[in-house]
Nucleic acid binder design. Structure first.
Length: 884
RNA sequence: GAGAAUAUAGCUCAGUUGGUUUAGAGCGAUGCCUUGACAGGGCAUAGGUCGGGGGUUCGAAUCCCUCUAUUCUCACCA
């Protein structure tokens, strides 16, 4: 028979998720307005506007949603602001590529035409990712959706630029920059990724002018020979001392260049002689400045050889390298080719090899900005989770370099700097710039004389304003005063410098206050073999497909069940499958109790009353643990605590106890108590699994308008001390497990009822004095008779020890002494050793005097329990004929 | 080259300022059971000298030193 029709179908999220999401949206539960409540604010790290949902987003967004939903249940004014990032380089590159496919070259378009295409692209693909977040259950205030290029955010950027300029914290400088010749723009240091790559080290000999001697240099970049303006050697290097004051001749070109002496040169590396190309190497540039060398830039912006190179003009730098090596060889300049592994910097966005290049760019002076940002993190005014990232942060902040913010692109905020010849006017509008120019140069200056900077600003120059700009904070204080600073930032540690550090600096610069109280760093999502998720490896699952297959709640569980803050998430489909199983378990467990028949005539058994008291005590413990975990952002731990409570305590414990005999009806009071329990359970689970909990919440009771799980009140923690009840139940459970184990070992069916007897003591009697406890033990362990004995003399049966209580199961079995004795003896030895250790501790005056009273008490209890166990073990060993 | 972090069961991790731990969890593994709330579920079992060595302490997975291994950050030599 087909199983799917034979069996009940379990939890099916496909219909429910969409239904509840629109219900919440329509009720306005995600929306936030300032009011008298305490705000709890999170800003989404804006994903690329044209991006699609990937595993990293899923983890990041799930964490934020859990925190926001928890805050909402805690009665705070929860506000989660969504938005997207214009990602200038990445988006512009995509648009350029798309236009190229249509046969359109960017260079053929005007700025306005290009931007039109870019906006079309943004409008077409933008927001796809936001709708995908909804599938996960993200409870963002969609009315607040912001975009780093929208009007408000654009104006914020312009204002900030002008403000920094006025404060003198912004300058324009001619410096060595990182040039991405594919995107044809400059990159900040943080956008360059270094990786070890194998390369060739070419040894090339240069003739000494007027002599028949040669000096051999080593280079990885022979094509830059065209730009050589010196050869440098170490002043202490005896090999090259004779060349003092001489000149060398650049191969192929015949240009005479000086031989200079500088301690920068490493005598050990290569040949000890270095060719100097000030235009194409940061160190060479410094050398050039020091020794007054000519700067010959032999590369065009697209990475091809420029006119200044004289040879191979127009050829790409890599092609030119091959050509010149061939020619050098032909002319006997090439001495040797050595293999070398060195670090190569590549563009984060286009992966092309970054070219050092001399260029005039805008910079932010970071020194003053960094100061409060560093101090407040180190003093935990802003807390990092995990804390270890403070080290990384501190290291970077203490060695911070100025931030190059101009980009040679069109897609972004255009730099509000206007030029007339070498005069610069920075202003929010052309009119203001004009006014400035006229004031300085005279009224004859017209707007048309002003040329605005062609470049746009680094995307991060708009992202760093996010905590203020999303509330329109550079324009008005209305919302900023309520929502700022935000509660927590959830983001990946990989953008700690690009984004996190800069937001902190921004916060102190314009608000004189941190932008967020806490920062939760998520790890990378990797596959089971610890490889990064990547398209080329094909190891990245389709996020939406996962939601379809396992349900959003299942996926959320999977993402969170194993991802400590800052630690990598090793994703495996089994994780989300466990999540799916968990939703199924909840669905069936709650459904089972709801479908139980009740009968008013059935009197509530004592066992049920006890089970209810116990499960509520357990729940209180669970609440405490979960609360603590949340306060430390240990979300996986909170989830696992809930998982264990729900699955082990509620479903495997509580429900098994209150289950009426097959086919019989249950009592009304127990059902009511169960519904109360489930109701609280739904609230506790809601932040992690919003959909199933909302659905079941409505199945549990008839609800009034507005009475929804998402806005319910989180259960409060009780101060009542339940430890006695909990430890008695623990003893009962231990007895139950032992009896089950005995059956297992002797291959007995669980259906075979057994007789049990216990040797009386204070522990077991207190346990059994709880009304209903005896019947719980009998039911769960299938005991037909439980008797108390004063002594074990003459008792026949399989003995075991729980806590300090000795019990006998009367199974009518031959007792296998040979098997039982060694185990008992081993346990006895272990126990004696433990007792000795405890005694030693307690007899140590310094321990008794020095340790806290509670610790000493605990040790005393351990000792007395241990003694009781030893006595019981000794008796049993003797009874079986062993000796101690 | 400079700095930092980590090392606990087959895997992934917890272990909160040294003492509620006689080192825990989840997954996985193994055995048994199950016509039933649960295209599954239950019960139970086995697995660790807490990377090696040394030290401080009445007491160390926890603090210190050292060695080994791994990872990361920053800088970057042609």
């Amino acid at each position: 028979m087909d199983k799917s029709t034979e069996k009940s179908t379990g939890y099916d999220p496909s219909q429910l998720e969409g239904k509840w999401y629109s219900y919440w949206e329509q009720k306005g539960y995600f929306n936030s307005k300032p009011d008298e409540r305490e705000p709890y604010t999170i800003l989404i790290p804006p994903p690329n506007v044209t991006g699609v949902l990937h595993m990293g987003h899923m983890l990041n967004v799930t964490i934020q949603d859990i925190l926001i939903r928890k805050a909402r249940l805690d009665g705070k004014n929860a506000c989660w602001v969504p938005g997207t990032d214009h990602a200038s380089i990445a988006t512009e590159a995509k648009v350029v590529r798309k236009l190229r496919e249509q046969g359109i070259k960017k260079s053929d378009l005007t700025r306005e035409e290009f931007l039109k295409h870019a906006w079309d692209w943004t409008d077409e693909y933008g927001g796809i990712i936001l709708s995908q977040l909804k599938k996960l259950g993200a409870s963002c205030d969609w009315d607040r959706t912001a975009f780093t290029m929208d009007e408000t955010r654009y104006q914020s950027v312009i204002k900030v630029f002008v403000d920094l300029y006025k404060k003198g914290k912004l300058y324009r400088g001619n410096r060595m920059v990182n040039w991405d010749s594919e995107a044809q723009t400059v990159l900040s240091n943080e956008e360059v990724l270094y990786k070890e790559e194998s390369a060739k080290l070419y040894h090339v000999r240069y003739q000494i002018a007027g002599e028949d001697k040669f000096i051999t240099i080593a280079t990885t970049r022979p094509e830059t020979i065209l730009g050589d303006t010196a050869i440098a050697v170490h002043p202490d290097d005896p090999r090259y001392a004779p060349y003092k004051g001489k000149k060398a001749i650049v191969p192929m070109l015949g240009r005479e260049i000086p031989i200079i002496f500088d301690t920068y040169v490493d005598i050990e590396f290569g040949t000890g002689a270095l060719k100097v190309t000030p235009a194409h190497d940061p160190n060479d540039y410094e050398l050039g400045k020091k020794h007054n060398l000519e700067v010959i830039d032999v590369l065009n912006d697209d990475g091809s050889i420029s006119e200044a190179g004289q040879l191979y003009v127009g050829e790409d730098r890599f092609k030119a390298r091959k050509l010149i090596v061939k020619d050098l060889e032909a002319k006997e300049h090439l001495v040797e080719i050595e293999d070398l592994v060195h670090n190569v910097g590549r563009s984060e966005r286009t992966n092309s090899v970054v070219e050092p290049k001399l260029s005039l760019q805008w910079y932010v002076d970071m020194q003053q900005l960094a100061e409060p940002a560093l101090k407040n993190v180190m003093e935990d005014v802003i807390r990092f989770f995990p804390e270890k990232y403070k080290n990384t942060y501190s290291h970077w902040m203490s060695n911070i370099r100025d931030w190059c913010i101009s980009r040679q692109l069109w897609w972004g905020q255009r730099i509000p700097a206007y030029y007339i010849d070498d005069k610069v006017y920075v202003a929010e509008t052309v009119e203001e710039a004009l006014a400035q120019a006229q004031a300085e140069l005279g009224d004859h200056i017209k707007a048309a004389d002003l040329k605005q900077d062609e470049d746009v600003l680094d995307t991060w120059f708009s992202s760093w304003l996010w905590p203020i700009s999303v509330f329109n904070g550079f324009e008005s204080r209305e919302e900023l005063d309520y929502y700022y600073p935000t509660s927590v930032l959830v983001t990946g540690w990989d953008i700690i410098f690009l984004w996190v550090a800069r937001m902190i600096m921004c916060g102190y610069e314009w608000e004189d206050k941190f932008p967020f109280k806490d920062v939760y760093f998520t790890g990378m999502v990797r596959d089971k073999k610890r490889r990064k998720m990547s398209k080329s490896l094909g190891n990245s699952p389709d996020a939406l497909k996962l939601i379809e297959d396992f349900g959003a709640d299942g996926v959320r569980y999977g993402m969170l069940s194993c991802s400590p803050a800052g630690g990598d998430l090793l994703f495996d489909e089994s994780l989300v499958d466990n999540g799916r199983k968990f939703t199924n378990k909840i669905w069936n467990g709650v459904g089972y109790v709801l479908n139980l028949q009740t009968d008013k005539a059935v009197i509530q058994p004592e066992a049920n009353k006890l089970a209810i008291a116990w499960i509520n005590a357990k729940m209180n413990e669970t609440l405490k643990k979960v609360e603590k975990s949340f306060s430390e952002y240990r979300l996986s731990e909170a989830l696992m605590t809930l998982y264990s409570f729900v699955w082990n305590d509620v479903f495997n414990g509580y429900i098994e106890i209150i289950k009426p005999p097959y086919g019989e009806a249950g009592d009304v009071a127990t059902r009511e108590a169960s519904i109360d329990l489930f109701e609280k359970m739904m609230i506790m689970l809601h932040p992690f699994m919003p959909f199933i909990t909302e659905e079941l919440w409505h199945k549990l009771r008839d609800r009034e308008e507005g009475e929804d799980c998402i806005v319910a009140s989180y259960p409060s923690i009780s101060d009542v001390d339940n430890s006695a009840l909990l430890s008695r139940m623990e003893l009962a459970n231990s007895i139950i497990s032992s009896v089950r184990d005995l059956r297992n070992k002797h291959q007995l069916s669980p259906k075979k009822a057994v007789k049990l007897s216990a040797i009386d003591n204070d522990e077991i009697s207190a346990c059994l004095d709880e009304a209903g406890m005896e019947s719980i033990i009998k039911k769960m362990a299938n005991i037909e008779e439980l008797t108390m004995l004063q002594t074990d003399e003459g008792v026949d049966g399989n003995s075991f020890i729980c806590g300090k209580t000795k019990l006998f199961a009367h199974l009518d079995l031959e007792i296998n002494v040979e098997e039982a004795l060694p185990k008992l003896e081993e346990e006895y030895k272990r126990q004696v050793a433990f007792k000795a250790g405890t005694e030693k501790k307690l007899s140590n005056e310094r321990f008794v005097a020095g340790a806290p009273a509670a610790v000493v008490e605990r040790e005393k209890k351990k000792l007395s329990d241990s003694k009781a166990r030893i006595a019981a073990l000794a008796e049993e060993i003797k009874r079986l004929g062993g000796s101690i």
